[in-house]
Each structure stands twice: as structure tokens, then as C-alpha cells.
Design a protein around this nucleic acid. Structure first.
Lengths: 207, 207
DNA sequence: CTCCTTCCCTAACAAGTGTTTGGTAGGTTA
DNA sequence: TAACCTACCAAACACTTGTTAGGGAAGGAG
């Protein structure tokens, strides 16, 4: 027998990759099996349904994400530092779970209505609350602007970060931290040039 | 006989709505027919395939979008004014073609590889070029920052605008122009508060 | 009235779907 | 050696999918 206790994880990663590329519904179990190097029926030795694979992928992603987010929130940083930390952690998460994030982005909208995936709605509520309170704290403390609609700002920051999963490829030109830094600079300072504005120093690309 | 020369358009709008909500592959022709008030087979009197419906929806959207974009680009405005006009037109397009935009966002990634939808890749190229040159013009003219990666900035602005289709609902609290104004303010000036920063005046909501 | 066109229905089709069942090669344990 | 377990295959299952063929009701045109 070969080693293969991690064969399950291997298949799951393959499935995530295919789901992210083709969409969940457009992906057949035979396609997954092909990419993983076995036959369709054999998948059911490891998983009890296609839906279970999706469920496991999303749960693993959200669990890890919330572990990081909770650590940031528990540190009780200032609003600006909290925002910076959340954004940075988000990009790191995209770096580690790119496929899962892409799937979440594409499918969570209509999966939320299925009872089995109800936890997606719960997660989104927590998500929204964490960001909104951070933004409101910042507005109250005078570090963020107060002339913007907070919910609009929330969606702006949230989308800005997470859609990066659609184009980000690990091992690319910029590290997750570098991307986070530039994104934060844009979100916080804007892209327009102002007098005396030159706070951001470009880094050389890695390797 | 009832009037109904626009019955075709009616069905197509319904299809777009369902595609946007459930995803193209997850949508069955029976579901579309249900929502449109006829039986599945009857759809084939108006259209010759499910794929044709998708094709027609996306083409109509892109045609209208490019008509507006070309008008903006032909006006030869300054870089900042061009960016503002492009963003505003984009939000107007989301207002008019919300479903089509949402479909485009979700499906264009893997549709692009199909020969029939090759024009999606072409459109994206033109899209990218229009935004990149605007940003580069602005950087050269000293109205945009030069310390940011241009391609990163491009994706930032692009995604920021178009993902709004996932949450925007026409007839909501803010008009497209109002959303465009706040988004532009965030993108250009940033969300951080600075001394003497109070250029943006909040509008009262409509109605 | 009759003919014709428009728009839809009924009923079925073949292909593809997720999933199950029974079997089996080959290593591990006794 | 024999019993056992893991990880897979082969073949089929019931069902759903997009699509087609033939027919028919309703109104306009002659």
C-alpha cells in the first residue's frame, strides 16, 4: 500500500481547483475524478456526495479565516490598525485558499438559501459586523472620513479585497503582504496625487 | 392574439434574472420557462438554444456598454475626468443591465475559452487598454500617484466598480450617480481622514 | 367562411448527471 | 498461511438535462 492518508486532502484540493475554474454546477464528478486520477464512483469511497466536498471546502476555508480574524479582533487594536490587519489577513487567506475563496465568491450567493449551507449567512453576518464596527469606530475616533455612507464603504472595502481572488495567482510578482500594502494605500489615501503625498515607498519584487 | 412582439425581450429578461440569481449552469430551461409563464419546449420557438439566450444577453450588454465607453473616450477629456466618466457610466450600466453584469462577472471567466464566446476576451482586452491608458496618462500628467503598480490599480478600480452588481438593486437608497460619486471619492481621495479634508458633501437620499 | 401566421402545448428523445452495488488487487496483521 | 482492510474499478441505476417533432388554438387577411 502506498502512504496515502492524505489522499483525501489531495482529492479535495483537486475538486476545489476544478470548482473554482468551472463553477460548482458546471463541474461533473467525472471531471473531478479525472483530474484526481481515479474513476467517478471511487470518489464515493472518500466522500458521500459532491455536495459534501463543496461543504468541506467552504467550511475549512471559513474556519481558518475566522481563526485569523478573531485573533486580530481580540488584539483590540485601533480602528486603522484593525482595518490594516484584517485586509492583510484576507490577502494571506487568498494566498492560501485561493480556490476556496473563488468558490465562495461565486456560489455563496445562492448556496446561502439551502439549509445545509445556512452557516454561510451566519458567517457573512459576523463578517459584516466586524467590518462595520471597525469603520464606525474609526469614524468616531476621527481617523476615517465621516461624510461617506458606512455601508457603502464597507462593501467597497470588502469587495475590493475579496475579488482579488479572481485574478491572484500564488507565486506571482507580488507577495500577499505587498498586495495588501498597496491596496491599503489606495483605500486609505486614494489614487489621486496630492501635494506632499509620497508616503508609500515601492518595494522591489520578491525573489 | 395578444400584442406581444416584445414577448421575446420579456423572456430574455426573465432568463437573465434567473441566470444571475442561480448561475447559468445551475439554471434549467424549465426554470426559465416557469418564470416566464410557458413550457420548456416553447422557449425553442423564440430561441434556438439555452446558450443562445446567454449569448444574446451578454452581447446586448457589451454593445451598450461600449457605445457609452466609446463616447466617453472620444470626448478626449483629461485623465481624471475620463476616469470619473467611465466609472459613472459603469454604474449607470449596472443600473440598467444589473442581471447581465452579474452574469458577466460570474461566467465570463470560463466562457471566454469557448469559441462562441471568444468576443468576451476581445472585449476585456479593449476594456483593459482603455483603463490602463487613462491611468498612465494620469500618472504622466501628475494627477494620479506614480508609486503604485499600474496593473494593480487597474484591477482595483475595475473590480471595485463591477462587483457592485452583486449587491446593487435598482430603486434602492442611492441613485447610480450618487454611488458613483461616493465610490470615486473613495478611490481618488481615500477613506482616511486628513487635515482639511472635507471636499465631499453628503447628499440626502432620493424620494 | 377559409387560409395563414403566431405562439404555445404535449410528449417524447438521447445524452449526461450524481450515486450505488458488488467485486477485487494488494498490502497489513495474526 | 489465512483473514482483513484500504483504495480502487466496472457496471449499472434512476433521474434530469437540453432539445425536437407534431399538433392545435386564436386571431388577422382574403
Amino acid at each position: 500500500m502506498r502512504p496515502a492518508p492524505e489522499r483525501r486532502r489531495e482529492i479535495l484540493d483537486t475538486a476545489a481547483e476544478v470548482f473554482a475554474a468551472q463553477g460548482y454546477d458546471a463541474t461533473t464528478v467525472r471531471r473531478i475524478a479525472d483530474a484526481a486520477g481515479l474513476l467517478a464512483g471511487s470518489l464515493y469511497y472518500h466522500f458521500d456526495s459532491k455536495e459534501s466536498m463543496l461543504d468541506e471546502i467552504l467550511r475549512a476555508f471559513l474556519d481558518e479565516l475566522w481563526a485569523r480574524y478573531d485573533a486580530v479582533l481580540a488584539a483590540l487594536l485601533g480602528p486603522r490598525e484593525t482595518l490594516e490587519a484584517l485586509v492583510t489577513e484576507s490577502f494571506r487567506e487568498i494566498d492560501r485558499h485561493r480556490a476556496a475563496v473563488a468558490i465562495y465568491q461565486k456560489e455563496s450567493g445562492h448556496l446561502r438559501e439551502q439549509p445545509r449551507f445556512g452557516y454561510l449567512a451566519g458567517s457573512q453576518r459576523r463578517f459584516e459586523e466586524a467590518w462595520l464596527t471597525t469603520l464606525e469606530r474609526g469614524a468616531a475616533a476621527g481617523v476615517f472620513r465621516t461624510d461617506l455612507d458606512v455601508r457603502l464603504t464597507y462593501r467597497f472595502v470588502r469587495d475590493t479585497v475579496w475579488v482579488a481572488a479572481s485574478w491572484y495567482r500564488p507565486g506571482g510578482q507580488h507577495s500577499p503582504e505587498e498586495i495588501a500594502r498597496q491596496y491599503l494605500s489606495m483605500v486609505l489615501e486614494g489614487v489621486a496625487l496630492r501635494d506632499g503625498h509620497r508616503t508609500y515607498e515601492r518595494r522591489t519584487k520578491k525573489e
